[in-house]
Every structure is written in C-alpha cells, then in structure tokens.
C-alpha cells in the first residue's frame, strides 16, 4: 500500500473501524447530541453521562466511513474519565492536529492514541470525517438542541 495511504489508514484505525469501542446506547444519558455530515451522509448519535464535571460514561451509534467511526471510537476511549475542561483542551489540540495547525514543538502526549489520525491533515476532504464526532461531543456538552452538521 502507498505510504501516504498507509499513514491515513493505520492499523489502529482499521481495527477501531472493525470493532468500535463504546458502540452502544446509554439509556438515560445526562447529555446527548446528533451529528451529521451532509457531504457523505455520515451520522452519529452521541450519549454522555456527566457527573460533577466529569465524563463518567460515553457511547455512540451511527454510520460512517472508517475515519469517522475510528475517530468516534478513539475519542470515546480517551474522553472517558476526563473532566469537561480537559476534554475541551484535547478537542482544541485534536482540531489543530487534523487541520495541520500544530506547531512542531507541540506536546502530543495529551492526545495519546489520537495521533494515529494525524494523517488526515494531508486529505482536506476527510478532515470533516475525523472532526464530526468531536463537534458532536462539544455540542452535547454545551447541550445545544439543534443537530450539528459539518457544513
């Protein structure tokens, strides 16, 4: 496989696409939101249990490409147990990473496994795929009622 393509579709992404983590419904979430990418028809329903400013539980359902599904799956693994403030900081850094705006000396440690999605920055058409779950998450945290779209 081409190196650039391999960089985008790393094994971790293919694994998360095949068996996404936290792919279920939380029956009585404290927060939830729906995300939609009209460009490709990707849909995500995100469920959260937030207690004392901490994400106690997070899950998602929906359909989408490998990038968007893996991004949602990885996000759910990383965010579980984090505070709202920590979550927002990770979101900002993640956004910078996938849009290629991170400066070279940036500390990527807080992003953990999310760095497997860095290859997306070379594929402008796919940045929205990686970002959909995150925008939906922020929407759910802020409890906006309108479904979020990437357009």
């Amino acid at each position: 496989m081409d190196a650039e393509l391999r960089e985008l579709y790393q094994q971790v992404i293919l694994d998360h696409n095949k068996s996404p983590r936290n792919f279920r419904v939380i029956e009585q979430p404290s927060n939830s939101s729906e995300g939609y990418n009209p460009l490709c028809g990707d849909k995500i329903n995100l469920y959260l249990t937030i207690e004392d400013e901490i994400v106690k539980d997070i899950s998602f359902q929906g359909s989408g490409c490998a990038i968007s599904k893996a991004s949602a799956s990885l996000m759910s693994s990383i965010i579980k147990g984090k505070t709202i403030e920590e979550t927002k900081k990770i979101f900002e850094k993640f956004q910078e990473m996938i849009t290629g705006r991170l400066d070279e000396n940036s500390d990527l440690e807080s992003l953990g496994k999310l760095t497997v999605l860095e290859g997306v920055k070379e594929f402008p058409a796919r940045v929205k795929c990686a970002g959909l779950a995150w925008h939906t998450l922020i929407n759910a945290i802020n409890k906006k009622k309108e479904p979020v779209t990437t357009e």
Binding site: L5, C65, F123
Partner: peptide
C-alpha cells in the same frame, strides 16, 4: 459490505481510479 463509499473512493484514488462517492445529490 462493511466498507463505506468514502473509504473506497480514497483507496481507488491511490490506484489512479477516480470515482464519485456519496449521495450524488439524490438523498
């Protein structure tokens, strides 16, 4: 089965094959 059209589109692109993926403005 189990492969989203956008992933197919990207993989085919790397084989030189240009196809369109999505709802084709016919939702």
């Amino acid at each position: 089965d189990n492969i989203h059209p956008h992933d197919i589109g990207t993989f085919l692109d790397f084989e030189g094959v240009a196809i369109r993926t999505g709802h084709h403005c016919t939702q």
